[in-house]
């Protein structure tokens, strides 16, 4: 269970096409312009979830969307993923407007969303199959990613036989295996116990530092956001707006980071921004 991410060559992450050149000029990968979203439930009044969100995410950047529950941060992620239609404003991926989901944007959900009738191996193989990877090659690659997330030996287990942390590892392997340029994460560690969560956080960081995907990470956990993200987008209570965008700029390879003073100060600062919104959300939102 505690098997850490193994030290592996870059090739294991399938980074082929995108390469690893750290010095490349920063390109805007995701451009969100004036996006709003209104939920229209079958019964009851429509709910305005998001209002005029504008945000740009650079290639290979790790951005956290932080806010109280119900602030629409997951909605924004689903809009980027193409799972919900963009009805107000525009979302461009590499300059192209989003038109439905696609394998260029991999997603990891809070409750794993593994296919329960497939074994771990077959879950991971699924996306590779859709990509048209040859049979032997996709099994080989799937095993590589299962190994990467420390699930070797559980290839033939069904999700119902795994713990929460193991399920999330499998889900991450499934998403990484198709080598998406963008990784969308919807409170991926939110349903894990504290120990597993902190373990998974550091493993995600290591994976990201190797594969350098663009990551949009939704969370309501301030510590998690400060620890993982390069930039934090603090969102207001419903209807969600961008309240503030902060650059973190901490050295995440410092093993003492979590106990360091700059880290604590950053967490305090971000928490002060989120706190008032959390209170507003608790009292039933803004409108």
């Amino acid at each position: 269970m505690a098997a850490a991410i193994k030290t592996r060559s870059i090739e294991a992450f399938g980074g082929g096409e995108r390469g690893q050149a750290g010095a490349a000029p920063e390109r805007t990968e995701i451009a969100i312009r004036g996006v709003g979203h209104t939920y229209r439930p079958a019964r009851g009044r429509p709910v305005k979830a998001l209002e005029t969100i504008s945000l740009e995410v650079k290639e290979r950047e790790f951005v956290a969307l932080l806010g109280p529950s119900g602030c629409g941060k997951s909605t924004l992620l689903y809009l980027i993923g193409g799972f919900l239609p963009v009805e107000e404003g525009k979302i461009l991926i590499d300059g192209q407007p989003v038109a439905g989901p696609g394998p260029d944007r991999g997603i990891v959900f809070q409750h794993f969303a593994l296919f329960p009738w497939k074994t771990v191996l077959k879950n991971v193989v699924y996306g590779l199959e859709k990509k048209g990877v040859a049979r032997e090659e996709r099994v080989r690659r799937a095993r590589e990613f299962i190994d990467l997330v420390g699930l070797s030996g559980f290839e033939d287990s069904y999700p119902s036989q795994l713990s929460g942390g193991m399920k999330q590892r499998a889900a991450i392997a499934r998403t990484l295996a198709i080598d998406p340029a963008i990784l969308l994460m919807d409170e991926p560690f939110g349903s894990l116990d504290a120990q597993t969560r902190s373990l998974m956080q550091s493993e995600l960081l290591r994976i990201w530092q190797r594969s350098r995907k663009t990551v949009v990470f939704v969370t309501h956990d301030v510590q998690e956001a400060v620890y993982l993200a390069e930039r934090i987008v603090v969102m207001s209570a419903r209807p969600g707006r961008v309240k503030e965008i902060l650059s973190v700029g901490l050295d995440r390879n410092d093993p003492g980071l979590l106990r360091s003073r700059p880290f604590a100060e950053m967490v305090d600062h971000v928490w002060s921004l989120v706190r008032s919104e959390a209170i507003r959300a608790e009292r039933g939102g803004g409108t």
Binding site: Y78, G81, G82, F83, G100, P101, G102, P103, R105, G106, I107, F109, H111, A113, F115, P116, W117, Y126, G127, K130, K131, R174, T175, I178
Partner: peptide
Amino acid sequence: EEVLVWSGRSLGASKARVLLEIVLPSAL
């Protein structure tokens, strides 16, 4: 579950494939 359908779509499955390979087994 909606997230299963979404997962399938974002892993590159077409709508028809999702019906056959995700909706059907999950209704089994």
